[in-house]
């Protein structure tokens, strides 16, 4: 079955890039969405295999989305320019893999393979 990934990212060009990159890698993309409320609505309809989260959504942390994913058992990674995303996004991001920003296809592949072994 085709794997699904939720993308939360507020910078539109980066959101588009991640979408195209992941689709090229064979994933079905939920979103991308730029806001917490929008992401939570999507999660009510469908739970993705994994999720990739930007940490800082225009001054709002992505924290509620991370908490919703954790409580529903969906593994996730962050794509953040912060060295320590938990300082901005709170304890729920502690120890979470960061694919970095700018995100290389290589680190994206590596992290996704860990979150959802083929």
């Amino acid at each position: 079955m085709q794997k699904t990934i939720l993308i939360v990212e507020d910078e539109f060009i980066i959101a588009m890039d991640l979408k195209v990159m992941l689709e090229r890698l064979g994933w079905r993309v939920l979103g991308p969405v730029a806001r917490v409320a929008h992401a939570l609505r999507l999660l009510e309809d469908e739970l993705p295999t994994v999720a990739l989260l930007d940490v800082n959504l225009g001054d709002h942390p992505v924290t509620p989305v991370a908490e919703a994913l954790r409580s529903r058992g969906v593994p996730f990674a962050v794509a953040s320019a912060y060295d320590k995303p938990e300082l901005f996004g709170g304890a729920v991001l502690e120890g979470i893999a960061n694919v970095g920003k700018p995100t290389s296809e290589w680190s994206l592949l590596e992290v996704l393979a860990k979150l959802s072994p083929p």
Partner: peptide, 18 residues
């Protein structure tokens, strides 16, 4: 500033890829 710089580089990367 460091954070924004990384965002700008991400944007340039995305443009090249797009």
């Amino acid at each position: 500033l460091r954070h924004r710089l990384k965002n700008v580089l991400g944007l340039v990367r995305a443009l090249a890829n797009q």
